[in-house]
Amino acid sequence: MTQAADYKVLIVDDHTHNLYTLRTLIEKHLGAQVLEATSGRDAIDITLEVYDIDLIILDVQMPEMDGFQTASLLKRRKRTRDIPIIFLTAAFKSEEFQQRGYAVGAVDYLLKPLDDELLINKISTYFRLIEKERSLNRVLERKVAERTAELEQARQYLENIVTYMGEALLVLTPQGAIKLANPAAYRMLGYAANDLIGMAIGDVFEEEGDAEAGAFMGIWLEALIRTGALEKIEARFIAQNGRRVPILFSRTAVTDAAGHITDIICIAKDMSGYVRVADDNENVIGVPPLDLI
């Protein structure tokens, strides 16, 4: 268990000799840090200044603001609502008052004259519960930190793949606006960083022999909805300077749980320097020109 000196106890009583007795008892047997308040208002003010109070021992019978009123205010505030409160009283001993104490959020309701051993055991019990909660929080924080590090490592890994891949990558909205492009795409198209973002795919792309160029996004979406992917399409990118860049193009749809397309992933391989020839079976294949062989 963590040393009791790591805990802070706020004791609240309008009689200074009661405060002295409580302080002496707690410091002698537990060594915890003790804060003192002589009224409910003082107690509220202290909790505004000190963030890490672990336990409050609160006298019920006090002038102006009694213990019930003080506890009620403490439980309304987010910062103090979870601090355990032990009520002490010499006057309000009936079952009715005890029930009222529990109703405003007390965890214990002890009667004076105090049994010193009982009080110390009660405080020790709450310290153990607090330590268990702290231990669980530390485990949770460690797991969150480990998971965060894993996610960051995975994010960096994927970012490196996107950054250093040789093919151009474009991520589109379902309406065909470019929302992400990798460095290879910027190099291939001759645009400065981030200039592609927000442009329509039709501004940088044309399909070979596409007689319905104005409607190809609609054709894309229809095909993607049916198949989820379109692969190895021969097409051209339109570079910033107007140059046509021959590409081999693939498109894949990303859908949500309802099956609606959220993104379109486009990958293009630069086919510049390649020519189209037919093999014996009349299948078109790409090979380097003779002067490159």
Rank of each mutant, 00 (worst) to 15 (best):
D52N: 11
D52M: 08
D54F: 06
L55I: 10
L55T: 02
L55C: 08
L55H: 07
L55Y: 03
I56R: 05
I56S: 08
I56K: 08
I57E: 08
I57Y: 08
I57L: 11
L58Y: 03
L58E: 02
L58W: 00
L58Q: 03
L58D: 00
D59N: 11
D59F: 06
D59T: 06
V60T: 07
V60H: 08
V60D: 11
V60R: 09
V60W: 09
V60M: 10
Q61V: 15
Q61Y: 13
P63V: 07
E64C: 08
E64R: 11
E64I: 14
M65W: 06
M65E: 09
M65P: 06
D66P: 04
G67W: 06
G67H: 02
G67T: 01
G67Q: 07
Q69D: 15
Q69K: 15
Q69Y: 07
Q69M: 12
T70P: 10
T70Y: 01
T70C: 13
T70I: 01
T70M: 10
A71R: 05
S72N: 13
S72M: 13
S72G: 12
L73D: 09
L73F: 10
L74Y: 01
L74W: 08
L74G: 05
L74S: 08
K75N: 03
K75C: 05
K75D: 02
K75W: 02
R76T: 12
R76I: 00
R76M: 14
R77A: 10
R77F: 09
K78C: 00
K78G: 07
K78E: 13
T80G: 01
R81S: 14
R81D: 05
D82Q: 12
D82C: 01
D82R: 11
D82N: 12
D82I: 09
D82L: 12
I83T: 06
P84N: 01
P84T: 00
I85H: 00
I85R: 03
I85C: 04
I86A: 06
I86R: 07
I86M: 04
F87R: 01
L88C: 10
L88P: 00
T89G: 07
T89S: 11
T89N: 02
T89F: 01
T89L: 05
A90H: 03
A90G: 15
A90T: 04
A90C: 02
A91W: 11
A91T: 14
A91M: 15
A91L: 15
A91Q: 15
F92N: 15
F92V: 11
K93S: 14
K93V: 13
K93Y: 07
S94Y: 06
E95M: 12
E95I: 14
E96L: 10
E96Q: 13
E96R: 12
F97A: 10
Q98C: 10
Q98L: 07
Q98M: 12
R100G: 02
G101V: 06
G101R: 03
G101M: 03
